[in-house]
Structure formats: C-alpha cells, structure tokens
Design a binder for these strands. Structure first.
Length: 638
RNA sequence: GGGCGCGUAGCUCAGUUGGAUAGAGCAUCAGCCUUCUAAGCUGAGGGUCGCAGGUUCGAUCCCUGCCGCGCCUACCA
C-alpha cells in the first residue's frame, strides 16, 4: 500500500508539472537517506532547473507552494539544494493497514514459463545446482505472489554425454548387468554411487583416450532407445532424476513438468525445427573450411561483432544435432511455435497434492504444457553464448516476439573457497590455493554434494535446537532443525546478487547468526511467541494512531512492515531475488529493535498495548508473506 | 585476439533508472540476560569506492583509456 501511495504521489507531482510548466517528466521517487527527511523524496527540481533556467531550490519551492494537497500526504518540504521531501499522514497509513490493504497484484496477461534446475541425471546434485534451483524457485514464488500464472519446467537431458559416460562406467569399467544396476538403484544413495563412478570414468578417459570410442558408441545405443544398454541408460537417468527430485523437495522446491530430451528425440522435435530453420534460411550447409559438411548458423546472427566465419555448428557433419539445435527446438516448443507436442504421464504427487508430470511419447494424462508468453531460462552465465544462439535462432525464424520474451535468467557459478577445499581434503595446487576460489568439477568429483550439505546443516541446527529446547520431543526438535537448515541454506544462496560468484565456504554457510536465514526465522518466531502469549486481543483504536505514531520509533516500524510490496516490486523489476532476501533481513532487524524497545505484553497503557500487539501482528504477517516468497519456512519454536 | 562480468572497510558482500554524511554481516575491542527466547541488543575502530581522464549543478553509478582477476569464445552439454 506504500507502493501505491508512492506511485500516486509521483503521479500527482508529474501532473502538476505538466500543467504548470508544460513539461512531461517522469518523477523519480526515492527514499531519503535519513528518516528525519521524511518518507519519500524527489530530486525532480534538479532536472527541471536547466530547462527552466532557474535554480533548483526555487523550482522546488514553487512546486511545494502550488501543489494541490495529496491524499495520505501530511506535508511537503524543500530541503538541501532542491529536494522535495514528503511526509506522510501517519494515522492515515495505519488506518489503511488496519483495514487490510490488498497486496499489489499485477494482472498477468498470459503464462510465464520458468525453466530451472536442469541437472544432468548422472550424479548427485551439488551446491552449484542448488543455487540454480533456489534462484529459480524463489523467482517463481515472486512471480506467483505478484499474480502471474507460472509453469515450472525442469528439463531432463537423459540421453546426453554425461548419462552415457556413467553408463559406460557401469558397462565397461564395472561390467555390471542391468539387473545388478537395478539392485544398486534399489539401495541407498544411488546418486552418490554415480558421483564416484562418473569421476572414475572421466579419469579413465583421460588415461586411455582410445576408450572415448565407448562414449560415442554408447550415445548411439542410448539415442536409439532400443536394446539392453539403452535400457540401462533409462534406468540410470530415471533413478537419478528421482534422487534430484527428492533432494530439491527437502528445500521445498517442486516442479510442474519434466520435459525430456529422449522425447525431443523420439518425437522428432528437431526435425520440425530443422525444417523451419532451413526454410527460413536461418542456417546453411557449409561446403568448405573447418565446418565443411555441417549445417551452421552464421556468427553475425547472434553477435554483431562476429564475422560470419565464426559460425556455430547446429548439425554436425555426421548428421547428428548439437545441444544448441535441440535447445532451439525446445525453446520453440515453450512458445507453442513448433507444431508438435509432448504427451505426459503423472510422475508423482507432492504432499500438498501438487502433481508432477513427465514427458512421454504416448498419450496418457490429459494435460497441456508450454505455449508460454514469456520464458525465463535459469542457466548459469557460462552458457550465455549458447543462449544468444537460441534467441538468434528464434529471430532468424521470424519469431521476434518469442525472441524478445526469451530471457536468460543468468547467474554466476558457485565455486569453493580454498579453506573449504582443504577442510574437505581436496589437494590444491599452489596456483589454486592462491586464488579466491576453486571451481567445482563434476568430472573430477570435486564439489559439495547437496544432500551432504543439507545433512550437515540439520545436524548443526539440531545440536543448537536441542540445547535450547530440552523440553521438546525429538520429532519437534528435528522439525525445527530442518526448517532452520532450509532457511540457512536458501538465504545463503539468495543473499548474493546473481552476477556475484559465490565462493562457497562451510563456515559462512553454516552460520546461524548475523545476516542469515535463521536470524529472520528467529524474529518471526519471537513475534509469534508474543502473539500466542498475549492470546486474544482487540484491534487497536484508530483514535490512538495519531498520538502513538507521533513516537518516531513506532512510526518507523509501521513503515518497515508496510514495505513488503515495494521490496517485491524492486526485486521483480531487477530480477533479483537478493533484494527480497535483503528486505527480509531488514525487517528482522527492525523487529529485533522493536522487540528490544517495547515490552509489548508488559505495556501498562492499555491503548498502547493494544497498538503494540497489533504492530507485532503486522510484523508477523510481513514475515510470513516474505518468508514464504523466499521459500523459507518459519518453525514453531527455535 | 574478441565477447561478457567483476574490482567498494581486514574478510564476504549491498548500494534502489546519477543526488543529501557510501551501508550490512563477519572478524576485533568495550558493554547489556531476576523483565515477551542473548540465534539478540548497544557502542567503538576500520574507506584514495582499482588507476587516470571526460560528461554533469552533482559520479561508487554514465563515457574513454589503462591495470588486475574470472568466465565464455568445441562437430561437449
């Protein structure tokens, strides 16, 4: 509601400038550095100064004197060299909050598709995958909270090189039969087993380059979809997908549909895309040079600085399509531009009844996916070049709208701090030890597994919870520890802006104090505790608002809880879940101060006590809304 | 070589389309638990916003050059 007020004030000033000076300007509203300057400020007079040939301060004074009164605004003041500071009508804001201002919801005009996670189904998920999934999931929650219809896709590359490599490992290195691998799948931590096997086969290739032929042959077997080895590939990939879904579920991350590469192949999505690309001359057949015999996209199509010689191979000389080619087909499908569709079957139903479908070749479940208006691909920034090629493909096909609405929601990688590498017993070269971080590598088996990290967080939280809450049952303690682990992990991954490389460090990730998820949870729990202890209470008397809000501290707290929508709007506009996380932290800081300054339950002034309880409830509501957008659960106790 | 990104306190990072005295956490030091949970609160120290120019009334932010670092630049994904 503060959000709407800000827009309204900006609009009123803009309107007045248009009438008074005949100038159409956008009035920027900002938050003053100091609370003493008021709630909003605009430097609009500075911008007008040059054109009006008047000092900014004179213009500001003119504006303040002539502006008609604005609803919800108590006063306007000129400050500094020409700022216009806005002071709000405190009681009016409180009254609006009491009546329950509706959260700002933008009307969605079509489905938004968010694709995230996309882990190769050949080994356990690691910390880098978690950043992708948590960013994607949080962004989805933000979009949904703002009223948009969102479909969450998790693409499964179940026929790619990485799966083939692990199958090679099972077949050639371990000489295991389908049945033997089936037994492994039924056991514990199959994804961990594959993690090690993948590292082994990668090393084996390195030591025995001639064995790379195994990989080529295996890819053919898997792509054909027939025979024992293809069955082995399916077994491995499906089992690992289950592991990943379970890992993500621990963090509250769920999906709507899993499109799969195997279906893209078998349903010949690529053939349709290939036909269109050829017809529209988006790609051409290279007859000379290093790419002779390939279908390529000219470099100038996806990068204006490139020469056409820097073309990107889409179809190899042996006739097989590259990943980018398949990705173009998949992206076309997302917009409903391919003229083909998957069929689906129900893969699982989540605890809350939410169904998850997986793509299949034959009709089964009567559901539809795709046909999005806007598509966000959550993919790390190392793949920006490939994402450019995909968009260029859409452009070349004449799908300008789709190209414009294809958004690479990029983020930097998660690396490991040298200290953490040493803790994990990873040997570092002198060169690596001197760097600020060390890149993780699935091939080397170098990385922090997601489940290990979650386990470690739960253990650490449980020790703390148990020592503080001896009277609680083991189940209750565990539930809280789990919530704290999720809160700590999700907040840790969200507090960095997207283009910051995270140097993962156990000590920082396991911290529960300071700017962390548990700090936010702790504040929310404390607010809940006050409310439950106070029991039923009446709404505060509106007549008391003016008196109580004259107290600067209380006014600042009311402002803080009223800023959730603003934080959301900012986070959404910037595409930065980190902004939402920061707001959650600031809210927690505000509550910590409130908690310290006002002994709510012990307040003797009845009117004030009623108001303080109401304020506590406002805090609690803001926490619940914000935490749920961040996917951070609030435990019953801490 | 080219493309993209980064460089802000001892460390890790924010910094709202250019705006008022550049912020937070950690770490360090000094305080605060018979009062709704100390996973907390208060205070202190700590800055040439990589360097040099330019644009502007005003630059951490925009432009140019330079220095340092990272990623990408495959008929891998």
């Amino acid at each position: 509601m503060l959000q709407q007020l800000e827009t309204r004030i900006g609009g009123a000033v803009s309107q007045h400038i248009l009438i008074r000076y005949g100038m159409d300007v956008v009035v920027a509203m900002e938050q003053p550095k100091q609370a003493a300057f008021g709630e909003f400020a605009t430097p609009v007079a500075f911008g007008l100064a040059k054109q009006l040939r008047k000092p900014p301060r004179a213009i500001a004074e003119e504006l303040v004197a002539e502006l008609p009164s604005i609803d919800g605004v108590a006063s306007l003041e000129v400050a500094g060299g020409g700022y216009i500071n806005v002071r709000l009508d405190r009681a009016a804001l409180a009254l609006a909050a009491l009546r329950g201002g509706s959260p700002a919801v933008t009307e969605g005009d079509g489905k938004v598709i968010v694709e995230h996670t996309n882990i190769n189904p050949n080994k356990a998920a690691h910390i880098g995958h978690l950043r992708n999934a948590v960013l994607g999931d949080t962004f989805v929650r933000m979009l949904r909270a703002s009223g948009q219809t969102v479909e969450v896709q998790n693409y499964i590359d179940n026929t790619g090189v990485q799966v083939a490599d692990v199958v090679v490992g099972f077949h050639h290195l371990e000489k295991k039969s389908l049945e033997e691998v089936r037994a492994l799948v039924a056991g514990e931590k199959f994804d961990y087993y594959c993690w090690d096997l993948y590292a082994r086969i990668s090393q084996y290739y390195k030591d025995n380059p001639e064995s790379l032929q195994w990989r080529k042959d295996m890819l053919h077997e898997i792509e054909s979809g027939e025979g024992e080895l293809a069955a082995l590939g399916t077994l491995v990939a499906d089992a690992i997908v289950e592991c990943h879904l379970n890992t993500m579920l621990r963090l509250g991350i769920v999906y709507d549909v899993l499109p799969r590469e195997s279906e893209i192949l078998h349903m010949q999505f690529w053939a349709s895309a290939f036909k269109q690309l050829k017809e529209r001359k988006a790609i051409y057949f290279e007859t000379e040079g290093k790419n002779k015999g390939c279908w390529v996209m000219p470099g100038s199509a996806f990068d204006s600085n490139r020469e056409d010689e820097d073309s990107k191979v889409i179809v190899r000389s042996n006739g097989t399509v590259t990943y980018v080619g398949k990705d173009i087909a998949y992206q076309m499908w997302k917009f409903g531009l391919l003229g083909k569709d998957f069929h689906y079957k129900l893969l699982r139903t989540y605890g809350d009844g939410h169904p998850l479908y997986v793509a299949t070749g034959a009709a089964d479940a009567p559901v539809n996916f795709g046909r999005g208006r806007k598509v966000f691909n959550v993919i790390d920034s190392r793949q920006s070049y490939l994402q450019d090629v995909v968009v260029a493909g859409l452009n070349a096909l004449g799908y300008d709208e789709a190209a414009k609405n294809s958004i690479h929601f990029s983020y930097e990688m998660v690396a490991l701090s040298p200290r953490t590498c040493i803790e994990m017993g990873i040997e570092l070269s002198d060169e690596d030890a001197a760097r600020p971080y060390v890149e993780v590598s699935g091939r080397k088996g170098l990385g922090v597994k997601a489940d290990d990290l979650i386990d470690k967080l739960i253990d650490s939280a449980l020790a703390e919870v148990a020592s503080r809450n001896e009277d609680r049952s083991a189940d209750e303690q565990f539930a809280t520890a789990h919530a704290i682990a999720i809160g700590a992990l999700r907040y840790f991954l969200l507090k960095f802006t997207r283009n910051t490389v995270i140097a993962f460090d156990f000590q920082e990730a396991l911290s529960f104090t300071g700017e962390t998820g548990p700090y936010v949870q702790y504040s929310a729990v404390r607010a809940g505790k006050i409310l439950s202890k106070a029991g039923a209470h009446d709404a505060p008397a509106p007549e008391s608002f003016a008196r109580l809000l004259a107290e600067e501290g209380l006014w600042q707290y009311l402002l803080a809880v009223s800023k959730t929508d603003q934080a959301m709007a900012s986070a959404l506009a910037a595409g930065e879940p980190a902004h939402m996380a920061r707001y959650a932290f600031q809210l927690a800081q505000q509550f910590a101060n409130f908690y310290h300054d006002y002994p709510v339950i012990h307040e003797t002034d009845a009117e004030k006590r009623s108001f303080l309880l109401w304020m506590t409830a406002q805090f609690r509501a803001a926490f619940e809304r914000t935490a749920s957008i961040l996917g951070i659960p609030i435990p019953e106790f801490m």
